[in-house]
Simulated assay, not measured.
Amino acid sequence: MKTENPIQLLREEEVKPTDIVLEAALGKDLFVVYTKLLEIICSEFQMEYEWRFYKDGKSWFCKVVYKKKTVFWLSIWAKFIKTGFYFTEKTRGGIYDLEISTKIKESFKNADAIGKLIPLILDIEKGQQLADLTEIIKYKKSLK
């Protein structure tokens, strides 16, 4: 979705993504969006999250889970928070019924499958985008 070359942050294994590190990386305004996102996943959806350094991706990623099911992945980039949901061909169609941005639906429609999974990627730059994220979380959690 981005035209410039985005820069992924949190690439040093020894620097854990504490709130202080995340606020420095994101800036004050985007850090507020991040804390609101955490409030939504923990309070509204009773999900848990865990930051972990992945050697294959050479950076810190946050896995958001409900019970044992991975709902989405989160990573920190210069100027935005990237979230990645993965759907199968069978569950893909439900995305088009959601009340979310047409731009997201178009991007998802054109997404290339990674193996059997189709990625739905959101680059969150503003708090208003959390409404779309919330709708996608509801759908993903409803899947068996």
Rank of each mutant, 00 (worst) to 15 (best):
74 L>C: 10
41 I>L: 12
37 L>P: 04
40 I>N: 05
35 T>H: 04
69 K>E: 13
60 W>Q: 04
60 W>I: 00
56 D>Y: 02
51 W>R: 10
77 W>R: 03
55 K>H: 11
94 G>H: 12
62 C>H: 03
33 V>G: 05
107 S>P: 03
32 V>G: 05
30 L>V: 05
90 K>V: 13
65 V>P: 00
90 K>T: 14
114 I>K: 15
102 T>P: 01
82 K>F: 06
86 Y>F: 14
80 F>Q: 06
93 G>S: 15
61 F>C: 04
104 I>C: 06
81 I>D: 02
51 W>H: 13
71 V>K: 03
73 W>M: 05
60 W>A: 05
92 R>I: 07
85 F>W: 00
35 T>A: 04
115 G>A: 07
73 W>G: 09
97 D>W: 11
110 N>T: 08
44 E>T: 13
105 K>L: 05
84 G>C: 10
77 W>N: 03
80 F>P: 00
90 K>A: 15
112 D>P: 03
110 N>Y: 08
71 V>M: 12
51 W>P: 06
79 K>I: 03
90 K>P: 05
80 F>W: 10
85 F>L: 01
36 K>E: 14
34 Y>F: 15
55 K>D: 13
56 D>N: 06
100 I>E: 03
41 I>G: 02
85 F>T: 03
52 R>T: 03
48 E>Y: 07
89 E>R: 13
50 E>T: 11
83 T>L: 04
85 F>Y: 04
105 K>F: 05
43 S>L: 15
52 R>N: 06
69 K>S: 12
99 E>T: 13
86 Y>K: 09
96 Y>E: 14
97 D>C: 11
113 A>R: 12
89 E>F: 13
105 K>R: 07
72 F>A: 02
48 E>C: 06
83 T>W: 00
70 T>S: 09
46 Q>H: 15
97 D>F: 14
92 R>E: 13
53 F>W: 09
109 K>A: 14
40 I>E: 10
67 K>C: 02
82 K>W: 07
87 F>K: 03
69 K>D: 13
36 K>W: 02
77 W>G: 01
56 D>M: 03
91 T>S: 15
67 K>Y: 10
46 Q>G: 09
83 T>V: 14
55 K>Y: 05
108 F>R: 02
77 W>V: 02
72 F>G: 00
38 L>R: 13
44 E>Y: 06
108 F>P: 01
97 D>K: 15
113 A>M: 09
92 R>T: 09
76 I>P: 01
110 N>G: 07
115 G>T: 04
44 E>I: 01
103 K>Q: 11
70 T>A: 12
75 S>D: 14
73 W>P: 05
52 R>E: 10
88 T>S: 12
60 W>K: 01
101 S>R: 08
79 K>S: 12
67 K>F: 10
80 F>L: 08
106 E>Q: 10
62 C>Q: 01
96 Y>T: 12
104 I>D: 02
50 E>M: 06
71 V>D: 02
67 K>V: 09
86 Y>V: 09
112 D>W: 00
70 T>R: 10
82 K>E: 12
65 V>E: 08
95 I>T: 09
57 G>V: 10
96 Y>I: 14
36 K>L: 08
94 G>C: 11
57 G>K: 11
56 D>P: 00
78 A>L: 12
